[in-house]
């Protein structure tokens, strides 16, 4: 599968960039003529992935978040969010609904939202080396 367009964003893990990242992905996705609810789903899923980098991967420092987006001919958008933070020892456990290490104000539903709002979600992680989240969303299916 060959991408018809790609983009890469690299930014520090400051919480103000949560809004920047999801808006940038939505602006990139606009070329696929997505429905409003597809765009809302995409923004929400991206926001969750980037927030995880800020809250968990770099909990006690500012690190680098890399967001890569690729748009394919049939309208599939693949978004990859990568950090080089603390990583997770048990990805399956971290993806369980309501599981969180983020304190009482975190719902533990970030991965549940990402799963609900995308067509495919893959997570790779290694303790001390970082995490990569790859999500795919079909756009323009109206």
């Amino acid at each position: 599968m060959k991408a018809v367009n790609t983009m890469r964003l690299v930014f520090p893990s400051r919480s103000v960039n949560e809004g920047f990242a999801r808006s940038a992905v939505a602006a990139f996705a606009a070329q696929a003529d997505p429905a409003m609810d597809e765009l809302a789903d995409l923004k929400t899923a991206v926001s969750e992935a980037v927030t995880n980098c800020i809250v968990h991967a770099y909990a006690d420092r500012i690190g680098t978040v890399t967001l890569y987006a690729a748009l394919y001919e049939e309208g599939t958008l693949r978004v990859t969010v990568t950090d080089k933070g603390c990583g997770m020892p048990d990805v399956a456990k971290a993806m369980e609904p309501l599981y969180t290490t983020g304190g009482p104000e975190r719902a533990g539903l970030g991965f549940a939202v990402m799963t609900s709002f995308t067509d495919s979600l893959k997570v790779r992680s290694a303790p001390g080396r970082g995490t990569s989240v790859v999500m795919e969303k079909r756009l323009g299916r109206r």
């Binding site: 999801r22 809302a40 923004k43 929400t44 926001s47 969750e48 927030t51 009482p104 104000e105 975190r106 719902a107 539903l109 970030g110 549940a112 939202v113």
Partner: peptide, 16 residues
């Protein structure tokens, strides 16, 4: 105009 799971956390925290 936008809400992710942080909004759910906000609701659950206030409920508590």
């Amino acid at each position: 105009t936008f809400m992710d799971s942080a909004g759910i956390g906000l609701i659950l925290g206030r409920h508590k």
